[in-house]
């Protein structure tokens, strides 16, 4: 379990992470979601003790990272797949990592096999494609068979096959009871991968909930209606208290109403319907609305503060 309490990181006057508190549960993939520059990577570096928080702390299984004994056995992380000496072989890279935490050499071969890099283990890591580098990074994270895993934007720049592989892999790790925290700026990707979501914007927590809850809460459900009597129907729906917007092609977009209700109203007054289709708002739109709000909120705060 990962537990962040009041985590804050300031660089001079800029606040990269602002009083952030959240928990990450074992046995589930938790998405760490936010637009670029929201403070996801900074937070992950603070979890790993690489950056010093200006305030607050992160505990991993109740301990700060620096107090973990042979930490690679507790926490595995892939923050950047390019953090490898380009002239060192994949195997040598994993070898020194394993050695540093007293892990046997045989473990290196095991993880290489797990990520499918056994054949290229002797090749220099600098010649690896992005997908292979990601796999090497994951192998490094898995070395100590850790209970807690952190991945920073692991699918960035990968082809669909690579994305699918990583998604399956992370879900597999969570099923084994591990704590998995994956950052991303793509809600659509996280909706497929993560069961829980920690959403941040401008370094502040926006929401922590299950993914389904988040998606339901944040997407606007509307119904698209096409009718030769659109004017009449529109007026009736407005009377009922729904919000109606007329689109350029003459169709109506109704929000706040279920398609059943609209159908009943139309039938009750003999209005012919050519189309009655529930629309689900896009995840991206919802996400941008939410994180956009956090930016506005930020600005307002600054003004009232004066």
């Amino acid at each position: 379990m990962i537990e962040a309490v009041g985590l804050t990181k300031r660089y001079g006057k800029t606040v990269a992470v602002d009083n952030l508190s959240f928990t990450v549960q074992p046995g589930r993939v938790t998405g760490f979601l936010g637009p670029n520059g929201a403070g996801k990577s900074t937070t992950m570096r603070m979890i790993l003790g690489l950056d010093r928080p200006s305030a607050g702390q992160v505990l991993i299984g109740g301990k700060p990272y620096a107090q973990l004994d042979r930490p690679l056995r507790t926490v595995g992380a892939l923050l950047d797949a390019k953090w490898v000496h380009p002239n060192r072989s994949a195997r040598a890279h994993l070898q020194w990592l394993a050695k540093s935490n007293g892990l046997p050499d045989r473990r290196v071969d095991e993880v290489l096999d797990m990520v499918g890099l056994t054949k290229v283990a002797k090749r220099r890591a600098g010649g690896f494609s992005l997908g292979m580098s990601q796999r090497l990074g994951i192998a490094g994270a898995l070395l100590g068979d850790p209970k807690v895993l952190l991945f920073d934007e692991p699918v960035n720049g990968l082809d669909p096959e690579g994305i699918l592989w990583i998604r399956k892999f992370m879900q597999g790790l969570a099923t084994e009871g591990r704590t998995v925290l994956v950052s991303s700026h793509l809600l659509s990707e996280m909706a497929l991968t993560a069961q829980d979501l920690v959403v941040i914007g401008r370094g502040k927590l926006i929401s922590q909930s299950s993914t389904t809850e988040f998606v339901e809460r944040s997407t606007e459900n509307t119904v698209r209606v096409r009718s030769p009597h659109a004017d009449k129907l529109g007026a009736m729906l407005i009377d009922k208290g729904f919000t109606v917007r007329e689109d350029s092609d003459g169709s109506l977009t109704v929000s706040g109403a279920l398609s059943d209700e609209i159908g009943d109203i139309a039938a009750g007054s003999g209005v012919v319907l050519h189309e009655l289709s529930p629309q689900r708002g896009s995840l991206e739109q919802a996400f941008m609305q939410l994180t956009g709000d956090s930016v506005e909120y930020h600005a307002e705060l600054a003004e009232t503060g004066k």
Binding site: G49, A66, P71, L72, A77, L79, V84, H85, P86, G140
Partner: peptide, 22 residues
Amino acid sequence: TTEYRFGTIKSTFQAAPDRTSP
């Protein structure tokens, strides 16, 4: 400097968080 250049210093410090011993 190559450890800083290629980011392996981060892995080094993840493996030995007291930093001084490595």
